[in-house]
C-alpha cells in the first residue's frame, strides 16, 4: 500500500507517491486546480472522497436523527478490530472488515430493544465498543512481526487508492444509498415516532437492524480508505450541522451531503498543497462548520 496520509509527506515511496509531487501553491488558481487533477493518486483520492462523502452524508443524517452516533462510532472501531483480525488470520482485510462490522451491527441491534431506555442502550453500546477495541489491540499485539499497517488501519490510505478500490467503493455506496432511499420514509417514521410507526405496520425492529447493517457495511468499506477514525468524522459532523440548519428531511439530507463533499474536497486540496494530513483538514473543517452552525443558527 502507498504511504498513509497520516504522515503528509509520504515516508515510503509507493508507485504513485514521491515527495517531489508536492510542489506547493503556485498562486495561479487555474494551474493549482489543474495540478490537483494531474496525478492518478489525486484523481483516485478525489473520486473516493466524493463517493465516501455522498454515502456518509446520507447515512449520517439518519444516524444522527436516530441518535446512533455512538453506535456509528462503535462500528467504525469494530472496523479496526476486523482489519487486525484479518491481518492476524492471514485472510483478506476486506473479509475482516465486513465480518466484524456485520457482527457489530447485530450485537448493537440486540442492545437496542423496543423498550430499552437510552441509558441502557448507550451502556450496552459502550461495552461493545470497549470490547471490540480491546480485541483489536490484542490481535495487533498477537501479530508478531511489524504491523506497519496500524496507522492505515486507523487513519486510512487516502492517497494510496487504486482504481479498483474506487470501483468497489462506488458499488457499495450505490447499494447502501439505494437501500436507504427505498426505506427512507418508513425509516424516518420508525426513527421519529416508533410507536405509531409500529401501529401503521412498519417493521420497526427489522428496519433498525437493517439500518445498522447498512451503516456497518458503509463504515467497513469506507474505513479501508479513510481509516476507521475519519469515516466517523464524515458521518457525524456534516449531518449534525445540517440538522442544526434545516428541519426539512430532504433539504437536510442534501445539505448533509453538500457539507461532507465540501470538507472532503477542501481537505484533499489543502493537504495536497501543504505538509499537514488530509484527516486533520477534514476533521477541522467539519468541526469549524459545526461550531459556526451552532453559534449562528
Amino acid at each position: 500500500m502507498g504511504g498513509s496520509w497520516w504522515s503528509a509527506r509520504p515516508t515510503c515511496t509507493g508507485t504513485m507517491l514521491t515527495s517531489s509531487v508536492f510542489t506547493g501553491l503556485s498562486w495561479n488558481p487555474v494551474d493549482d486546480v489543474h495540478a490537483l487533477f494531474t496525478y492518478p493518486f489525486m484523481q483516485h483520492a478525489l473520486a473516493a472522497g466524493t463517493i465516501v462523502a455522498v454515502m456518509a452524508g446520507v447515512i449520517g443524517w439518519f444516524m444522527v436523527l436516530r441518535r446512533q452516533t455512538f453506535a456509528g462510532h462503535t462500528l467504525s472501531l469494530t472496523a479496526f478490530t476486523g482489519a487486525s483480525a484479518a491481518v492476524l488470520a492471514g485472510v483478506p482485510i476486506v473479509l475482516g472488515y465486513f465480518t466484524v462490522c456485520g457482527l457489530g451491527a447485530l450485537a448493537l441491534a440486540g442492545a437496542s430493544g423496543p423498550r430499552r431506555s437510552q441509558g441502557t442502550e448507550s451502556a450496552a453500546t459502550g461495552s461493545i465498543q470497549a470490547f471490540a477495541l480491546g480485541l483489536g489491540f490484542l490481535f495487533v499485539s498477537l501479530y508478531h512481526g511489524v504491523l506497519n499497517g496500524l496507522d492505515s488501519l486507523l487513519f486510512g490510505t487516502f492517497l494510496g487508492i487504486t482504481s479498483s478500490q474506487v470501483l468497489v467503493l462506488l458499488v457499495v455506496a450505490v447499494v447502501a444509498i439505494a437501500l436507504v432511499a427505498v426505506a427512507a420514509r418508513p425509516l424516518l417514521f420508525a426513527s421519529v415516532d416508533p410507536d405509531v410507526a409500529r401501529a401503521s405496520g412498519v417493521r420497526v425492529q427489522l428496519l433498525g437492524l437493517g439500518f445498522l447493517l447498512v451503516l456497518g457495511l458503509s463504515v467497513a468499506e469506507t474505513s479501508q480508505i479513510t481509516g476507521a477514525l475519519l469515516v466517523f468524522a464524515l458521518l457525524v459532523t456534516p449531518a449534525a450541522t445540517a440538522q442544526r440548519l434545516t428541519t426539512r428531511p430532504l433539504a437536510g439530507v442534501v445539505l448533509s451531503v453538500a457539507l461532507a463533499l465540501l470538507v472532503t474536497w477542501l481537505g484533499l486540496a489543502l493537504a495536497y498543497f501543504s505538509v499537514y494530513p488530509v484527516g486533520f483538514y477534514i476533521t477541522s473543517l467539519s468541526f469549524a462548520l459545526y461550531v459556526l452552525a451552532r453559534v449562528f443558527a
Binding site: 427505498v182 427512507a184 420514509r185 418508513p186 417514521f189 405509531v196 410507526a197 401503521s200
Partner: peptide, 11 residues
C-alpha cells in the same frame, strides 16, 4: 408521516 410514512420509496 401519519399520512404516508409507512410507504416504501421516496415521494
Amino acid at each position: 408521516l401519519g399520512l404516508d410514512g409507512a410507504r416504501w420509496g421516496l415521494p
